[in-house]
């Protein structure tokens, strides 16, 4: 996903939502600043930092269609580190978990956030599956997990267009080709149609 910029988002939000986002981003920025100031007192663990309350409330304050964009912007502005991302994912509703997954390519430059991707790929929630299979997974997911994820998309009806760099990672993958062939055979034996995405992925995997 190419995250929306603040300017693009402003064009989509109404006045009240824009004002809310101004305040939310300011809170996120001051959180980021406080963290980098030496000796800044940590907020008491029982209190939720204000920007995290905004993170949770983005759907109702900026509408669900823009919640992904607003939340990823907040994470970026707060310069959320892996520890924060992990906590927000674990404590988040599905929509918040999506935003954390969508932010990984921008905020985490190692494979250290893979446990979050793995968690999302274990679910059957297609909102999480699609968010988990972006550029971060394309860059860091090991072959076995990646093939399983592709197959899971086919099982849960997630279009393979959501798998970032499908063609690059599938090319010449003989094991993926075998799995797809077996899956197609299983569908055919059961008298069920083979989804067009299976043929498409198979063609990619059989390329040299």
């Amino acid at each position: 996903m190419t995250p929306l910029t603040r300017t693009e988002l402003d064009g989509l939000l109404d006045g009240a939502a824009r004002a809310w986002l101004d305040d939310a981003l300011a809170e996120a920025a001051s959180h980021a600043a406080a963290r980098t100031t030496a000796g800044a007192p940590p907020s008491p663990p029982s209190r939720i930092p204000p920007w995290e309350v905004r993170f949770a409330a983005a759907g109702r304050c900026c509408s669900p269609e823009h919640a992904d964009a607003v939340r990823t912007l907040l994470l970026h502005e707060a310069r959320a580190d892996l520890k924060t991302l992990t906590r927000l994912y674990r404590q988040g509703a599905a929509a918040e978990r999506r935003a954390v997954l969508l932010s990984l390519p921008r905020l985490v430059d190692s494979s250290a956030a893979l446990p979050l991707v793995d968690d999302a790929l274990r679910t059957n929630d297609t909102r999480l599956l699609t968010a988990a299979l972006g550029p971060y997974a394309a860059a860091h997911l090991d072959s076995h997990s990646w093939r399983q994820a592709v197959l899971k998309c086919l099982f849960t009806g997630v279009p393979l267009d959501h798998v970032h760099q499908l063609a690059v990672r599938a090319r010449g993958d003989a094991e993926l080709a075998r799995m797809l062939t077996d899956y197609a055979a299983e569908r055919t034996a059961a008298g069920r149609p083979v989804p067009p995405d299976v043929h498409r992925a198979l063609a990619l995997a059989e390329e040299d």
Binding site: P64, D68, R98, R127, T130, L133, G134, H162
Partner: peptide, 15 residues
């Protein structure tokens, strides 16, 4: 399949 109620964000979510 992906629920339509988040259809927009899901379609944007891929690449």
């Amino acid at each position: 399949g992906p629920p339509l109620h988040e259809g927009n964000s899901i379609l944007r979510g891929g690449e």
